[in-house]
Amino acid sequence: MIEVNNISKAFDGQYVIKNISVVFETGKTNLVIGQSGAGKTILIKALVGLQEVDEGSINFDGRNFTSMNFKERKLLRQEFGMVFQGGALFDSLSVIENVMFPLKMFSKLTYPEKLERANFCLKRVNLDNINNLYPSEISGGMKKRVSIARSIALNPKYLFCDEPNSGLDPINAIIIDSLIKEITEEYQITTVINTHDMNSVMAIGDKVTFIYNGHKWWEGNKNQIMFTDNKELNNFIFASELTKIIKSKISS
């Protein structure tokens, strides 16, 4: 469980997130939604320590991340997995080397054991026969899946995904969403996903937090979101023609 208590972050005196408190639950896919520039990415970067918060605290199962020193954070981060928007695979390493990378750095496994684990992770994300290809030789969807495989190689307790299905076609986006949900439930991970994709919200939104202008504006789940009377959230979720049609059908 990740507890975020009243965190704020400002750049040049301008707050990008302000007084956000939220609890991300274990074994659930916790979605953070909001418009571009709302503060979602800063929030997820604050969670993993890529951005220091100005106020507030972040606790990982009772461990206060914000007050930790560099060494303590390093240790805790070994329990993190992160899927970046562009995959962030290492260009100079092949697919299998990318997945083996965290194992090489932090495990005492022998080479065959590392290889076996990396192959297992790649199979888990339904990728076969691409072990020796380089990131530049695979598609965007594959990159995301390799990135998920790399992030679960060390059995993380916490998984962070920054817009994991952005830039993907609807079919691949659904595959990625389902994969993250399956992995979250199977390994009882605390998963936090940044997205502005309403399909993801409806498919895997166990818990949804809506960020608006740097503030937490709404909290609920996928079953509650369609019936909310929150004006800003309604403007966000019913922005597209498709969702407007769905809403009118639901209303009628």
């Binding site: 070994q78 992160m82 562009g86 962030a88 750095m105 962070f160």
Partner: peptide, 13 residues
């Protein structure tokens, strides 16, 4: 391309 961020999140200097 966020590869440095990926290293940091893994706990690597």
């Amino acid at each position: 391309t966020e590869q440095i961020d990926a290293l940091e999140v893994m706990g690597i200097n």
